[in-house]
């Protein structure tokens, strides 16, 4: 009797978890594995991939999402953050960086909204230079101070009050790669199936 009860307990415990996995991860994984990349989606360049690893290293994902909500669910559409994202947009993403927090704005189409390398570098050096009130951390270690810039250096022009004396501030390889990744974040190409607003029960 004890043995049978233990067996049922063991089986039940095992089954509940594996059923959950099958339903929420296993089956969807099988279904979505067939998704083809859209025509407009390009693979990351080497520099962008490197930038993406900097994005992960500095924990950008804890404050920025990379997913656009459909119309009628939040204000992403009204803020012109792009069409709703679809599974095909993410086929080259490993690890995924969908995010769960918007302390800062969504970055799925940041490259389309703000394509200036100078702006991004300034913003990374200290966000409050270009975005007063921001609580984003500064990333000065993505830059270095030099006596004079080399020909292929990217110099950033800081406000006078914080410019170091007799030195120039240039972006490091890491800083430029992260910027390349951000500018490359452009998912404005068309996709065949854009989901409609997914809540049919709620009245607006």
């Amino acid at each position: 009797m004890m043995f049978i009860r233990s067996f049922i307990f063991f089986l039940g415990v095992l089954a509940t978890l594996l059923l959950g996995w099958a339903g929420l991860v296993g089956i969807p994984n099988f279904m979505i594995s067939e998704v083809q990349p859209p025509k407009g989606l390009e693979r990351y360049t080497y520099e962008q991939s490197y930038g993406r690893s900097i994005y992960i290293r500095e924990g950008c994902l804890y404050c920025h999402s990379q997913q656009v909500r459909p119309a009628g669910f939040g204000a992403d559409q009204e803020r012109f953050w792009g069409r709703p994202s679809v599974p095909a947009d993410y086929v080259y993403d490993k690890p995924h960086l969908l995010g769960t927090m918007r302390t800062g704005p969504d970055l799925f189409n940041i490259g389309a909204r703000q394509s200036s390398e100078d702006w991004h570098l300034l913003h990374l050096y200290n966000p409050r230079i270009v975005s007063p009130g921001s609580v984003m951390p500064p990333f000065p270690w993505l830059f270095e101070e030099k006596i004079s810039a080399a020909p292929d250096d990217k110099v950033i022009v800081l406000p006078d009050s914080i410019t170091p004396r007799e030195k120039v501030v240039v972006a490091t390889r890491e800083g430029r790669a992260l910027t390349a990744y951000l500018i490359g974040m452009n998912h404005t190409y068309p996709v065949s199936q854009v989901p409609a607003h997914n809540d049919t029960t709620k009245k607006k």
Partner: peptide, 27 residues
């Protein structure tokens, strides 16, 4: 004791990509 090791192993199978990786992540 049964669930936690199983969960960890299944999560680390390495067969997930794109949005299903996100599903696995939050599962």
């Amino acid at each position: 004791l049964i669930w936690f090791p199983l969960l960890y192993v299944v999560a680390n199978l390495g067969i997930y990509h794109g949005v299903t990786e996100a599903a696995m992540n939050w599962w």
